[in-house]
Design a protein around this nucleic acid. Structure first.
Lengths: 144, 144
DNA sequence: AATGGATGTATCAAAAATGATTACAACAAA
DNA sequence: TTTGTTGTAATCATTTTTGATACATCCATT
């Protein structure tokens, strides 16, 4: 199955925060308008990003800001923050392969490393892209 | 969300077919026992693998065999065969970003390439691993 | 200290995907 | 013709996601 839209929405949120931080108070309603989803979805995501140390959210007066420089926030950080899968495992393994069958008994031993290798390649690529990178592209497009 | 267990089950199936092809008729019931899921789940997967040209399944008399050498069946082939997502896209994009917002309007333009880059890294790694590779490891473990 | 705008979070509902299971027609070989 | 198997439809339960409402909590400002 696909990786949830939480991930692309979270990236969208961070780009918004950085783009508008000078000119607007970036509230969950503001973000909800840009992304076009319910404000509660945004608040839930902001909580996850906050727990991961990526953003700060102010109660009462309101508004979200990044908690560290955009160059230090990678897509992998965001993925890990919002993709709440057990131990960050990309692949769902079938639960109870037969221990009587020679193949069933060994399937984990022969597959686990390969799956990690694949997931590792994906994560390496995610780690190589920062919010700053995407901000640079965004600025260029907006200025045009 | 995670990639469905259809993927690991499909790999398990193929390893079973190759491991037992000399000694048993590998039926959906046989495979269901090793994987420990319902036989219909196996049959559905075998159909998907068949449509992708990976296995042949015999009606009536029964049994499944690989349709090409295991060295030519990669994990990417299997992934594409069973992970029935629209256009094979790994990431689910939020549907309707606001066209009024400068960020919403451009979010696809700035993200699509990056997402493809990540997915590409994953697929490259999947393509580098064949059923033969996994068979080699499996044989070693079984013989021990 | 009252107010007003915002967050944090619980709860419920709806939609989509997964996976289990039953049932049975179609098929092929003995 | 019998037997074992595949191919596939139909149904159900479960899980995950996403949408939506509601409201207590918070905090800056008046």
């Amino acid at each position: 199955m696909q990786i949830s839209s939480r991930f692309t929405i979270a990236v969208h949120i961070l780009i918004c925060i950085e783009t508008f931080k000078e000119d607007y108070k970036v509230t969950s309603d503001f973000l909800a308008s840009s992304v076009n989803v319910n404000a509660v979805v945004i608040r839930r995501l902001l909580q996850q990003l906050k727990r991961a140390g990526i953003v700060d959210v102010k109660r009462g007066s309101g508004g979200a800001v990044t908690a560290k420089p955009p160059g230090e926030i990678t897509l992998l950080d965001i993925y890990n923050a919002v993709e709440c899968v057990e131990e960050g495992k990309l692949f769902h393994f079938h639960e109870n392969p037969s221990q009587e069958c020679p193949v069933g008994k060994n399937i984990h031993a022969v597959l686990d490393d390969r799956l990690e290798q694949i997931q590792g390649a994906m994560e390496r690529e995610m780690k190589s892209i920062s919010i700053q990178d995407i901000m640079n592209d965004t600025k260029k497009l907006i200025e045009k």
